[in-house]
Amino acid sequence: MAKLVINNVSLKYHTVEDEIEALHNFNLQVVAKEFISIVGPSGCGKSTLLSLIAGLIKPTSGSIFLDSSPISGTTQKIGYMLQQDYLFEWRTILDNALLGLEVMHRKTGESITRVKKMLKDYGLSGFENSYPHQLSGGMRQRVALIRTLATEPDLLLLDEPFSALDYQTRLAVGEDVCRILSQHQKTVIMVTHDISEAISMADRVIVMTPRPGRVKSEHVIDFGPEYDHGSCLKRRESPRFREYFTAIWKELNTNER
């Protein structure tokens, strides 16, 4: 049985002016430890999909199962990293990283030690007591990742996690995230609009149609055994990278549905 099953999910947003169908009959199965990238035109319902999986909103029709049980509301099994870091400027870096644990009443001596170790491992030692404005964009994004990982979710949702960063930082943080995630062995669904990023990190890339979003096509990414998840940069140099890129790029640029 798959880790996550998304079954014919549709979602309509209602506002006074209009009704917007963001997703229409969306289907996807994700197996444990798989890394899925989702690409699609902006406004096609990618963030909506993640919010549905996270249990923040309910589908208009269809159902979503995590470990065979239907999703109803948020669960501690899922970690959701938003598009920007949204660090709280009044909290120190350590307190920001501990936010999730605190909300879940799981802040203990043991978990604090663990988070401090993560901060150290991911190049943030010495910044525990700094405030967010003292950190660079890349560092802040790593704090946000630690905040998400600290609650030890087994399914990770990443919504354009690097879009707020400049290109150079983006590559560096992407590389860090690759390394960190390959250590943690999580199931990951990452939304991005950067095709290279999607290919370099994923086992499978899902291309979505314009709104209302559905799966348009999927591409299994296989660079062969010598390119494991440890380094995304290395994967970018593989000869197959170009092929995948061209195929997905074409998919995204043809309007037929």
Partner: peptide, 14 residues
Amino acid sequence: IDPNKIKLMHTFGA
């Protein structure tokens, strides 16, 4: 207050 800060809290089940 930035609704995304509140959304972040919701993701932790606050």
